[in-house]
């Protein structure tokens, strides 16, 4: 028998026209931070706008203030720093299309290079940014898993100073991160790989432009044939992107053998916490995690030198 309607979304109606908002276009980071200090909770940062604008268009988001950072100088860097053990710096305005075409990524950060062309569609990639995607904290976002696999971090800044937050602690829940209302995410960082390394990203999507039904980021660094560092991140199978730590641990210290791969993919599937929805049942998604982690790791058996 039919039941009384209970699960009606609060405001699902279709609006093509956003609510009123005040718009600022600062040109320096300090100016942007000043605006954030002033408007805080009421403000939203506009970078690529590939999530924010659709949400505003539908009035799911109605920020009173939009701070457009696209004119801010010094946020479009994509480079490797040699400081410490070295790390990759991805500025807040680096577009996904730039990542997709980057030789630095394809030679040194293969997991990112594999993920970049799988982000939505070319139109979205031309505008969308990695840092913006992380701040949006969509559990179906691809870069969250990549950054978890690679142990990346986010650099945030406010008028009070700078913080570096590991992505594992940055992603706090569906569409929530630990950034504070007065902070601006200025950069994502990824530790430079050492030894022989390899990585990839596999994504099952219903069509190009759809969110991942399941996405899997894998990364391994080996020395003398044994895994020294392993990273496995899962997309679309939990309230946030998931770092499959037990699966990672199961690989470290072992050769990338069929047995090790089977065990890691089994543990990764166990780490997944998917929900049944239009993209498939929870059982299905969990099994795709298993298959994809195994396939991803199989692809890495020919790891190359740093």
């Amino acid at each position: 028998m039919p039941t009384i309607a209970r699960s009606v979304p609060q405001r699902w109606e279709a609006y093509v026209f956003p609510s009123n908002f005040e718009y600022f276009a600062p040109t320096t980071i300090d100016e942007a931070l000043g605006l954030l200090a002033e408007h805080g909770d009421e403000a939203k940062i506009l970078a690529g706008g590939q999530s924010l604008i659709p949400l505003m268009k539908l009035r799911f988001a109605a920020p009173a203030v939009v701070i457009d950072i696209n004119r801010v100088a010094g946020l479009d860097h994509l480079e490797e720093s040699k400081r410490g053990r070295g790390f990759l710096r991805v500025g807040a305005l680096v577009r996904n299309a730039t990542l997709e075409r980057s030789e630095l990524l394809s030679s040194r950060y293969p997991t990112m290079a594999a993920a970049a062309p799988l982000i939505s569609d070319p139109i979205v990639r031309n505008q969308g940014t990695l840092v913006g995607s992380l701040c949006h904290a969509d559990p179906q976002g691809d870069f969250g898993s990549v950054m978890l696999a690679l142990d990346g971090e986010i650099v945030v800044r406010s008028t009070a100073g700078e913080r570096r937050i590991p992505v594992k602690r940055f992603l706090d829940g569906p569409f929530t991160s630990t950034i504070r209302p007065d902070e601006l995410a200025v950069e994502a960082r990824v530790p430079s790989p050492e030894g022989r390394f390899s990585g990839t990203y596999l994504k099952l999507e219903r069509k190009v432009g759809d969110f991942a039904t399941v996405g899997v980021a894998v990364f391994v660094a080996t020395e003398r044939g044994k895994v020294m560092r392993a990273g496995i991140g899962l997309t679309g199978v939990g309230a946030t992107n998931i770092k499959a730590t037990e699966a990672e641990a199961a690989l470290v210290g072992h050769r990338l053998s069929d047995t090790a791969i089977d065990e890691a993919s089994r543990l990764a599937a166990a780490a997944a916490d998917p929900r049944t929805d239009v993209r498939g049942s929870a059982d299905y998604k969990r099994d795709v995690v298993r298959v994809y982690v195994a396939r991803g790791l199989q692809q890495l058996t020919g790891a190359k030198a740093a």
């Binding site: 039919p2 039941t3 009384i4 309607a5 209970r6 699960s7 009606v8 979304p9 699902w12 279709a14 569609d121 219903r206 069509k207 190009v208 432009g209 759809d210 969110f211 239009v278």
Partner: peptide
């Protein structure tokens, strides 16, 4: 275009109602 048990339409935008692109 599908519906949940309460009659909510699933497929009210092109994120949920899928149209193949040149890729597929």
């Amino acid at each position: 275009i599908s519906f949940d048990d309460d009659g909510n339409c699933i497929g009210s935008n092109f994120m949920d109602y899928l149209i193949p692109t040149a890729w597929e």
